[in-house]
Structure formats: C-alpha cells, structure tokens
C-alpha cells in the first residue's frame, strides 16, 4: 500500500503546486515534473512491474486517475493563466481612441459637375443619350438652325462672342440639337437626348452674370409627343433636383426654337410657397425654359414636322446651384477657392 499512499500524496502535492503556479512556464515545468517521461507519476508507474498481479490493476487504475486529475488541473490552470495573460496584454495595449485617425485625402467633384451628373443620370434612366457638341460653333448652327435668322430681334437676347463673322462661341447648347436631328434615323426609334456643356455670352462678370456658364438642354422627338409629356418630364426633374414635395407651374414665354414656349417655375424650396426672400415673396422660383420644338427647326433638319414633333427644355446648372445652395455670387464657381469647393464634398 505504500505506492497507493505515494500516489495520493503526489496528487495532493501536484494540486498545491499547480494552484500556486504563477506563469505558463512554471506550469510547463510542473507538467514535466509530474507527467513527463521522467516525471514522478511516471516513475511510480514504472514501479508497477514489482507488484503482484492482484495489486497491479488496482494500482493501475489509481495511477491513471491521479494522472488524469493532474492533467485536468494543469489544463484548467493553463486556461486561467492564459486568460490572465491576455487580460494583461489587452490592458497594456489600450490606446487613446480619441486621437485623430490617419488622414485619407480625397478630392471632390465640382458642385456644377454634381448638378449636371445628377441630371444626366435621371435622364439616362429614362432612355436619353448624353450628346456633347463643340464649344466653338458656326453662326449657322448656333442661330439660323434654331430659327434665329440674321437680324432677328431675338438675337438681342443673346450677346455673342464672335471669332469671325460666321464662327462664334456657342451661346447655348442648342446647336447640338440641330446637328443631332439631321443625323438621326427615326427608323431606329425616337430621339431622346440631353446635352450638357459650357456656353458663353458677352457679359461683364458680376455677382449674377458670367461670360462662361453651363447649360443642359434636353430634347425628345417622336410621333405623338405632347406638351403634357413635357410637363410630366419637367415635374420629375424638378422633384429630383429640389425635392419630392415640389410643384411646378408653366408660364407662357418665348424662345425662337420652340412654340409654344414656356418658362417653368418650381414652388419655393425654402418657404414651400408661402413667400420668402429666395422666391422674392412670390412662392415660385424660375428654373428653366422649355417648349414644343418649333416646326421650322425640325424642317430645317430634314424632319417631317407633320409626322414628328416633340419638346425641348434647357436649364442652367450654375443658376440651379446658386438657388439650391444659396450661393450669391456666380463667380465663385470659376475662382476655384478650395474653401468654397470643399463645402460640396458632402453629397447633397
């Protein structure tokens, strides 16, 4: 029975030592000490060969129990120690999470680009093509082909930068309509286009005038296009640009290339129509011009105006941006002051 006692004592001793172990290293040496090849439990087991066959199974069972108990204690303790170590490590690794992050530098699109892209995307979604023309145009395409012959009084509405008597900086993006119309084959379906771009007028730059600004024009030509379609399309545009609750109203106006022609007001997005300084107390803000494409414009482009017709509209992204963001000086768009441009990093 000597061995039995020895084993029991060994277990108690191991329990105590494991309990006191301070680190993983010490724990490992205890494992070796008790369970290693030359360990104390092992050496007790080695002494089994001197026992009687009757004693062997009894003692063997006990020895296994002792070994299992020590193993269990060891792994229990190991887990505890690892937990402690991790806790300690985490505590040591604590940082000041309020310190600033590493700066990621990104740029932003120009506010006018943002407006134009928003409009482009709306119309792309409705099956329009984006068509860009040249900024230098002939007098013929810029004026005559949009129903503004020489000496037409309406030419006064647009002061023009000429390069030669018949070459100029386009005053609107309308020449693209004439150029596209004369190319379009209606056998391939209707013509639905928008044309964004820079335009130029002989104006002295001040808070509300700029010799360079932007325009987006749209046009749809097909059989059976109605003015109600124009109204519905513009309603969609106004809601997209200024919010779902907006309403529009059409007022008679005049553009040589459309008839009937209208100017389009949107209900004031600042006061909702009650009247404020943005809408000059009227509740309405003028945002674009539109109309039904003039039959002369169609005929000049070789399109049969008895069969085909449609609408056109044009708006100024500069003006829209001024209204939408309360920008009070159009020159801000072309000075490129970072403090101005960066304000439009946040997506509207």
């Amino acid at each position: 029975m000597e061995m039995e006692e020895k084993l029991t004592a060994l277990l108690e001793e191991a329990k105590a030592e494991i309990g006191n172990a301070a680190g993983l290293k010490e724990l490992e040496s205890l494992r070796v000490k008790y369970l290693g090849k030359k360990g104390e439990v092992t050496s007790v087991l080695k002494g089994m060969k001197d026992l009687t066959p009757k004693q062997r199974p009894v003692l063997g069972k006990l020895a296994n129990e002792v070994r299992d108990a020590i193993t269990a204690r060891l792994s229990e303790k190991k887990e505890t120690l690892e937990q402690e170590a991790l806790k300690k490590q985490l505590a040591e690794e604590t940082i000041d999470v309020t310190l600033p992050g590493k700066k990621v530098t990104t740029g932003q699109p120009h506010v006018l680009t943002q407006i134009m892209e928003e409009i482009e995307d709306l119309f792309l979604g409705m099956g329009y093509q984006v068509i860009e023309g040249t900024e230098v145009e002939t007098d013929y395409y810029n004026f005559e082909r949009v129903n503004l012959p020489q000496n037409h009084p309406a030419r006064d509405m647009q002061d023009t930068f000429y390069i030669t008597p018949d070459v100029l900086l386009r005053t609107h993006t309308s020449p693209i309509q004439a150029r596209t119309l004369e190319q379009h084959d209606f056998a391939n379906g209707p013509l639905k286009m928008i044309s964004p771009g820079k335009v130029y007028r002989r104006d002295t730059d001040d808070a509300t005038h700029s010799h360079q600004f932007h325009q987006i024009e749209g046009m749809v030509i097909d059989e059976n296009i109605t003015m109600a379609d124009l109204k519905g399309t513009l309603e969609l545009l106004a809601k997209k640009m200024f919010g779902e609750e907006r309403e529009i109203r059409l007022r008679p106006s005049y553009f040589p290339f459309t008839e009937p022609s209208v100017e389009v007001d949107v209900s004031c997005f600042k006061c909702g129509g009650k009247g404020c300084n943005v809408c000059k107390q009227t509740g309405w803000i003028e945002i674009l011009g539109a109309g039904m494409t003039h039959p002369h414009v169609l005929e000049m482009s070789g399109v049969d105006s008895r069969k085909y017709g449609g609408f056109a509209f044009g708006l100024g992204p500069d003006r829209i941006a001024m209204l939408k963001y309360g920008v009070d000086d159009i020159r801000n768009f072309y000075l490129n002051d970072q403090r101005f441009l960066e304000q439009f990093k946040r997506k509207g």
């Binding site: 109605t226 379609d229 399309t233 309603e235």
Partner: peptide, 12 residues
Amino acid sequence: YNRLPATLPKSE
C-alpha cells in the same frame, strides 16, 4: 397650363 395633364413620353 395648370390644366394641362402631366404625363411621360410613351415612346418605344
């Protein structure tokens, strides 16, 4: 103009 309906082009 306020009595004009608002629709979208019914093109192909």
